[in-house]
Computed example of a mutant assay.
Amino acid sequence: MIKIYHNPRCSKSRQGLAILEESNQEFDVVKYLEDKLTVADLEAIISKLSIKPLDLVRKNEAIWKSDYKGKTLSDKDIIEAMISHPKLIERPIVVNGKKATIGRPPESIKNII
């Protein structure tokens, strides 16, 4: 089952959702700002993306700049920051089985559906 980790207020996330709707495939929408992710959820997503946790962080968010930027953080620390502040998670993320992508640009979603 395809999942999109979606923020309805984000234009790229809405574009990613539209691509999934046009694909005529079944998918689940996870509004991760409302339904908070667990550490295990986020670790699984990061593993499927084959990236470091820092690569999933929205580094221009005010909370990142004020609380985390310039500090020495472990991968665990970064994951905990994203769990505590889900706005820090890059979006949209689409997971299809063992594959995942960050929908930036949204068209990259087509590569895994």
Rank of each mutant, 00 (worst) to 15 (best):
44 A>L: 05
24 N>I: 05
60 N>V: 13
71 K>V: 12
56 L>H: 00
21 E>C: 07
59 K>I: 05
83 I>C: 10
31 K>T: 10
16 G>Q: 02
105 P>R: 10
14 R>F: 04
3 K>T: 12
100 A>S: 07
72 T>N: 07
33 L>N: 04
65 K>F: 09
29 V>R: 06
102 I>E: 07
58 R>V: 06
17 L>P: 02
84 S>I: 11
5 Y>E: 11
58 R>P: 14
5 Y>D: 11
14 R>M: 03
49 L>C: 09
112 I>M: 07
47 S>Y: 15
8 P>Q: 11
24 N>P: 04
58 R>K: 13
105 P>H: 09
112 I>K: 13
22 E>M: 07
3 K>I: 11
8 P>I: 13
54 L>A: 15
61 E>T: 13
48 K>Y: 14
80 E>M: 11
72 T>V: 10
90 E>S: 13
79 I>E: 01
74 S>N: 06
30 V>Y: 02
4 I>A: 02
30 V>Q: 03
43 E>M: 10
63 I>L: 15
54 L>S: 12
60 N>Q: 12
46 I>W: 04
61 E>V: 10
38 T>M: 09
55 D>P: 00
5 Y>I: 15
100 A>W: 07
2 I>C: 00
107 E>G: 07
109 I>Q: 09
53 P>F: 01
19 I>L: 12
88 L>T: 02
48 K>V: 06
98 K>C: 03
66 S>Q: 15
3 K>S: 14
94 V>R: 04
27 F>V: 01
27 F>A: 06
